[in-house]
Design a binder for these strands. Sequence first.
DNA 1: GCTATTAGACCCC
DNA 2: GGGGTCTAATAGC
Length: 151
Amino acid sequence: MKMGIVTTDIGSVILYVEEGYLVRIELTERALLPVDLPPFTSQLVEYFQKERTSFSLNFRMEGTDFQRKVWQTLMKIPYGSIVTYCGLSKELFGSEGCRYARAIGQVLKRNPLPIVVPCHRVVAKNGLGGFSSGTCWKKYLLSLERGENLF
DNA sequence: GCTATTAGACCCC
DNA sequence: GGGGTCTAATAGC
């Protein structure tokens, strides 16, 4: 497994590449030194430099049908825009309202590829909502994309 | 299988 | 704002 590291203003982003596929991204508040630059790393660097708003890379995600369905829908959220857990629930299951909002939160919590699969663009109906790597990352990513602090 | 957990939402005070 | 309730997928037992 190859690793790539991108350093940002508030911490480091670690990319794990396996057999030519991006399989995991970890966000940490620690500052790590870049050791090598496997494929995909440069795209993350460009993203943090605001020179990239979408990714073009081979990635692999394993999960249940429900998880894949949610992750797939996340990929359609445009750069800089936000949706709510409730809104996602309605989009996926129609008239059943916000019933799945909480389950969707559980899926996003286990998103192995944050940033690339943009779970940071999903917020609660009244507030920021959580984030697996800490809400300061979520705030940072949203302000990076939107150029304003919403929360 | 069952139980506890949870990155939500809603209601009432 | 705090407390209770409904809710559904998951992890762990």
